[in-house]
Computed example of a mutant assay.
Amino acid sequence: MAVSSSPPPFPEQQPVSARLKALRERAGYSIRALAQDLGMGHKFSSYSFYEQKLKKEYLPVDLVRRLVPLLCERGDPPITASEVWALSGVIPGGSDLNDGIARATRAQAPRRNADGTITINEYDITPHAGSGAIVEETASGSGESHPSVAAWHMPRAFVENYVSDPSSLAIIRVSGNSMEPDFMAGDRVLVDTAHRVPSPDGVYVLWNGLGVVLKQLMLVPHSNPPRIRIISVNQTYPMDEVNAEDLVINGRVVGKWVWK
Rank of each mutant, 00 (worst) to 15 (best):
L20R: 02
R112G: 06
A157S: 15
I171R: 09
E136P: 03
G130H: 05
G41V: 11
D76W: 11
V16H: 01
N224S: 04
S178K: 13
P8E: 04
D99W: 13
K55H: 01
K53V: 03
P226C: 09
I249G: 00
I79G: 01
P7C: 08
L214H: 04
L217D: 01
D115Q: 13
A107K: 15
N121T: 12
I134H: 09
P7H: 08
L190A: 11
R66P: 00
S45C: 06
G130D: 02
E12Y: 09
L38W: 04
W85E: 01
S175K: 14
A35M: 08
L214G: 02
N208V: 05
P198E: 02
Q235S: 14
G89L: 11
S199C: 08
D37P: 03
R112A: 12
V61W: 00
G130K: 08
W85T: 04
C72H: 12
L210G: 13
L97A: 04
R229F: 03
V203K: 07
N121A: 15
L206M: 04
Y47G: 05
V242G: 05
I231K: 10
Y237D: 01
H42T: 11
V163W: 04
D99S: 14
T80F: 02
P77A: 12
A35E: 06
D37H: 15
I118C: 10
P127Q: 10
T193P: 09
I134Y: 08
S142R: 13
A170H: 10
V213M: 06
P15T: 10
G211E: 10
G132H: 08
M40T: 08
T126I: 11
V254A: 07
Q36D: 07
R24M: 12
V3I: 15
Q108F: 07
H222S: 13
P15S: 10
Y50A: 00
S46D: 06
S46A: 15
G141V: 11
K260H: 13
V174N: 01
R188G: 06
P8W: 04
E180L: 12
V233A: 13
I118T: 10
R111T: 13
V90P: 03
I228Q: 01
G93A: 06
Q52N: 09
